[in-house]
Amino acid sequence: MGVEQHFLSEDERGFAGFFPEHAKLEQIATGLVWAEGPVWLNDIQELRFSDIPNNRMMTWSETKGARVFRQPSQRANGHTLDGDGAMVSCEHGGRCVSRTGTDGAYEVLATHWQGKRLNSPNDVVVKSDGSIWFTDPPYGIISDYEGIRADREIDGNNVYRIDPDARAVELVADDFDRPNGLAFSPDESVLYIADSGRAGGFGFGFDDTRPHHVRALDVVDGRKLGKSRVVAVIDIVPDGLRVDTEGLLWISAADGVHCYTPAGERLGRVLVPEVVANLTFGGPSKSRLFITATSSVYAVETRRQGVQAP
């Protein structure tokens, strides 16, 4: 399967140069409803991703193609890996953060903060010290499309940290509208967080008065967030994001993937023929860009390498 590729270069460095000369955007899986949360498992050379409305988690490999990994999946959304190679997941249906070990063992890591039920954990990253950082917007409780409609118990949509030793859930940011994708800079001195407030949620349309940007927040003492600045304003709403080894930001949006410098300069876009949700780097050289987009998953080879899990 293949589709025509499009690169829009917007700087003198030449965004198209980030890709091999004959690179093509390839559709590697389809038949999904809303594909999300891709994560690359290097040890077994497989991509896992969510198909949220179908309440299933999928896996894909070059040799076996796409197949169901887990169903039901508690309408899982974002995934990452911890230092042991286990998959850490955000579950809309379970309103929790969970962990699936390399042996398949499953455990719930977090369901509440200060005695109140989480909204619907959305996306997650693991820091090199083993702490787990995740966003908690309400997308999984405002309708039955991506989760289970329910009343919120927490006022606000926050960002949290799970302490690696005490397993306590700690609030690290409470000034976001709808925090979404997140990723650390290569040296972990900055945490980038997308705010998709402009997207009211499935069936709710757009609200131009609300945020649609990515912020960079200084990481203080390895466990708190400090000074914040906007590094990218995405008119059609940012969702997921990843950082490559040279510190460039790769941000998913409805039209494709936008690439920004940490200083806020947009270098270019990879346009995708379906509405894009999320992305990750993977493949044998960690240079293949995998993109989840509505009913399909796409891939394109790059000359960049993504920052991998610790």
Rank of each mutant, 00 (worst) to 15 (best):
V3A: 07
Q5W: 12
G17W: 06
G17H: 09
G17K: 14
F19M: 03
F19L: 14
P20L: 10
L25N: 02
E26L: 11
I28L: 02
T30V: 01
T30W: 12
W40F: 12
L41A: 11
N42D: 08
N42Y: 02
D43M: 04
I44S: 15
Q45M: 13
Q45A: 15
L47K: 09
R48Y: 12
P53M: 01
M58N: 07
S61I: 08
E62H: 12
G65R: 12
R67T: 07
V68Q: 01
F69M: 11
Q71A: 07
P72G: 05
S73I: 00
Q74I: 06
Q74P: 02
G78H: 01
G78W: 05
G83R: 08
G83H: 07
S89P: 00
G94M: 05
S98I: 08
R99M: 04
R99V: 10
D103M: 05
A105E: 14
E107M: 05
V108L: 12
L109K: 10
T111L: 06
Q114Y: 06
G115Q: 13
R117Q: 15
R117D: 00
L118A: 03
P121V: 02
V124M: 02
V126S: 10
K127L: 03
K127I: 04
S131Y: 01
I132E: 00
F134D: 10
D136Y: 05
G140A: 04
I142N: 14
S143L: 03
Y145E: 14
I148N: 13
D151P: 04
E153V: 07
N157W: 06
R161L: 06
R161E: 00
D163G: 04
P164I: 08
P164N: 05
R167V: 07
V169P: 08
V172N: 02
A173S: 14
N180A: 06
G181M: 00
A183F: 08
F184C: 04
F184V: 09
P186D: 03
S189L: 01
V190K: 08
Y192S: 01
A194F: 03
D195A: 03
S196T: 04
S196C: 00
S196D: 03
F202V: 00
F202Y: 14
G203N: 11
G203P: 10
F204H: 12
F204E: 08
F206C: 02
D207Y: 10
T209E: 05
H213R: 08
R215F: 00
D221G: 01
D221E: 15
S228K: 15
V231T: 03
A232P: 02
A232Y: 11
A232G: 12
G240D: 05
R242T: 11
V243A: 09
T245F: 10
L249K: 09
W250L: 06
A254V: 13
A254F: 11
D255Q: 14
Y260E: 06
T261M: 00
R266H: 13
G268E: 02
G268M: 08
V270Q: 11
V270A: 00
V270G: 06
L271G: 08
V276A: 04
T280A: 13
T280L: 02
G282D: 01
P284C: 01
P284T: 15
S287Y: 01
F290P: 04
I291R: 13
I291E: 13
S296M: 04
V307E: 11
A309K: 02
